[in-house]
Amino acid sequence: MATSPVRTGTSPTTGQWRVVDIVVASVLAVAVGVVFFAWSAGYSGISVLTAGFPPLAGLYSGGWLIAGVLGGLIIRKPGAAIYCEMLAAAVSALIGTQWGLGVLLSGAIQGLGAELVFLLFLYRRWNLPVALLAGLAAGLALGISENILYNALWTIEFKLLYVLFAAASGVVIAGLLSWLAMRGLARTGALSSFAAGRTADV
C-alpha cells in the first residue's frame, strides 16, 4: 500500500507541541480550575475543620496539583505539567479561589515537581507508578514551597507535618485520581488525537 504522509509531522517523542496539544492543554487547565471552583463551593465545611489545625489543609492540597499531573499524562510533551499547572493557577486567581501573583509562582513550582518526574523517565513512561511519583513530587514541591513562602513562622514540627500531608495528598489526589481520569478519558475516545488515547493498555 502506497502511503504518502500529508506533511512531515511531529512524532510524539520529538517533543514539539502541535496546535491540538496547546489548545487541549489550555482548556484542560481551565476545566480543572472550574472543577476546583465547583468543589470549593462544597468544602467550605472542611476548611472550617482544617482551620482548627492548619497543617490538615495539606490533606486536600492535592486538588491543586491535578492540572499539572493530568496535563502531563495526557499531553506527554516537555513542559506540559508546568504549563497546565501555571494556567490553572492563573484561572484560580481569575475566578477568585486564590489571589495575587504569588499563585503563579506556586503553580510554576508545583508544576515543576511533576515535570521533573516525567523528565526523569524521559517522557516515555506513563504508567501508574510514574503518575503516583509525579503526584508525590508535586505534593512535596507544594509543601516545601508553601512552608517557605507562607508558613515560614510555623515551628518546624508543624512544617514537617504539613509536607507529609501534602505529599500524601499529592500521591492520592493528584497521582491516583489523575491516572484514573486519564484511563477513563482514553476509553471515552476523547483522547483520540493523543498518544494517551491510542495506547491500548494505559
Binding site: 500529508v6 506533511r7 509531522g9
Partner: peptide, 18 residues
C-alpha cells in the same frame, strides 16, 4: 483533509493523493 487539518503522520495514514 481539504482544509489541511487532518493532522500529521502520527495521527493517521494516508494513501493516494489529494
Amino acid at each position: 483533509a481539504l482544509a489541511g487539518v487532518l493532522g500529521a503522520n502520527d495521527e493517521g495514514e494516508q494513501e493516494g493523493e489529494l
